[in-house]
């Protein structure tokens, strides 16, 4: 499974009713709330063996699948 597919699976687990591929403003449009973010960060840390600290919690890193992938890759580096 590619990283993108894995990420989408995690996201859909948290918010089953959202089409994540089409969204560009997950934070700005309040699709992901603070509780979702905490759940998401926990899952991402486990799945990709990274450590997302509170410094990374800016809307820019979480607004779309692409932005999330960028952040994960950067933290894996």
């Amino acid at each position: 499974m590619s990283m993108r597919e894995e990420l989408l699976e995690i996201l859909e687990d948290i918010r089953p009713d959202t089409d994540f591929e089409g969204e560009e403003a997950l934070i700005d449009d309040n699709i992901l709330e603070s509780l979702d973010i905490v759940a998401l960060v926990g899952e991402l840390n486990d799945a990709f063996d990274i450590e997302i600290t509170v410094d990374e919690l800016i809307p820019d890193n979480f607004n779309s699948v692409d932005r999330l992938l960028d952040m994960i890759e950067r933290l894996q580096d």
């Binding site: 603070s34 905490v38 960060v41 600290t53 509170v54 919690l57």
Partner: peptide, 12 residues
């Protein structure tokens, strides 16, 4: 409170 209390605690 979300940015400076909730996130730092829950993500520590």
């Amino acid at each position: 409170c979300r940015d400076y209390i909730f996130y730092p605690i829950s993500l520590s």
